[in-house]
Design a protein around this nucleic acid. Structure first.
Length: 360
DNA sequence: GAGGGTCAAGTCCGT
DNA sequence: ACGGACTTGACCCTC
């Protein structure tokens, strides 16, 4: 197995996930103008039910139109990220680039050379631009993407879904080698059964390309950090600090925690990626932004586990932000805030300022 | 254009 | 038993 290139010497990066939110801009005189601006930058989709209702020609045209838009939008997202300061050059791509890729209604359309060639050319170009611009790319398939399930059908669909993500990555130019340029496709374990051992066994059922891109993330209830670290010899672990806080009922991991070394080791030479988010600001309107949220205390005040797990709009908590800055020594970060770039850009600016001040 | 129903898929939690 | 949440509410139809 190839391990090059190493990225541990890479500079730190953080970024937003999937969707770009334009700045509130007086240029956009109407709500519609603002919405149109957002549409240009973001990927769309089409429902399989809608495609199914169309005749053969309209069906192809509809899907082709969406895919064309998505390739153009993804290219604009990558270009936008590439133009940001180095600290911000990381992007989680939306999974909807090629809607319904594994669905029987859309599958035959994707086999048409006209569409296939357009996709291959478009993604190759985007990948080149990402690499030229120093943008680290990832994908995070949805909850349906599980590689081990008690339900054989669900498992087959889940593996197909993972292979779809791996194919997109391959077309972008990340199809061979161990997490090339830090690229990865990150999933959760899924169901309680067959759990970690089922996951490990089923690694043999996925392609080498997918295995080379796969990472596994700790979740907030069933499979916490200790559980996913049991896969660390085979699969890099994406540490979600917020999930860990929820799962452990209040622990914020520090960089010197021994478990961090295990996470780093699981990436085998590649600079890790971690996730961060914080409980919703609307849930905690009176919370001190300078203090880390205290899970037992908040629970005691009647906040449910579910509510505390939900993500905030912005990175409102400075103590959490300072924690991210400390962890950036060893890991990149995907900022999982509903406000997307509106949350990640100010966070990066704050961290950038602090780093400059410390260097001066 | 606005509003409401629909959307491929798994699994768990809370009610 | 069913709705909501997760990654991410967006899409589609009707008025």
């Amino acid at each position: 197995m190839s391990r090059a290139p190493r990225t541990t010497s890479e500079p730190p990066r953080l970024g937003f996930c999937c969707t770009f939110i334009p700045d509130p801009d007086p240029q956009h005189k109407t709500l519609k103008a603002a919405k149109d601006a957002a549409k240009l930058m973001n990927l769309g989709t089409v429902t399989m039910a809608h495609l199914e209702r169309l005749g053969p020609a309209a069906r192809f045209e509809k899907l082709e139109g969406v895919v064309r838009h998505n390739l153009a939008a993804l290219e604009r997202q990558v270009a936008w990220v590439a133009a940001r300061p180095p600290l911000e050059r990381l992007l989680r791509m939306a999974s909807s680039v090629l809607p319904g890729y594994t669905h029987p209604v859309a599958q035959p359309l994707y086999a048409e050379p006209a569409l296939r060639d357009r996709i291959a050319a478009g993604l190759a170009r985007i990948g080149e631009q990402a690499r030229a611009g120093g943008v680290r790319l990832s994908m995070h398939p949805g909850p349906f993407c599980i590689i081990a399930s008690r339900n054989p059908n669900a498992q087959a669909n889940g593996i197909a879904e993972l292979e779809y993500h791996a194919e997109v990555m391959a077309m972008l130019g990340y199809g061979s080698g161990w997490h090339p340029h830090g690229a990865h496709v990150n999933i959760h374990i899924g169901g309680r059964e067959p759990g970690i051992e089922g996951f490990r066994e089923n690694l043999s059922l996925i392609s080498e390309t997918a295995r080379n891109l796969l990472t596994v993330e700790n979740d907030e209830s069933l499979f916490g950090l200790d559980a996913v670290l049991r896969l660390g010899d085979r699969v890099p672990v994406v540490l979600d600090l917020h999930h860990h806080w929820v799962e452990s009922r209040g622990e914020y991991l520090e960089p010197d925690d021994p478990r961090i070394q295990a996470v780093i080791a699981s990436w085998r030479g590649v600079r890790p990626v971690s996730h961060i988010s914080v409980s919703r600001e609307s849930l905690l309107p009176d919370h001190d932004p300078g203090a880390l949220p205290d899970f037992p205390a908040l629970s005691g005040q009647g906040h449910s586990w579910r509510d505390l797990a939900a993500h905030s709009e912005l990175m409102w908590n400075e103590a959490v932000n300072a924690l991210v800055a400390r962890h950036l020594v060893w890991s990149d970060f995907e900022i999982e805030a509903k406000g997307k770039n509106q949350a990640s850009v100010p966070l990066a600016a704050r961290i950038g300022r602090d780093r400059e001040a410390a260097a001066a």
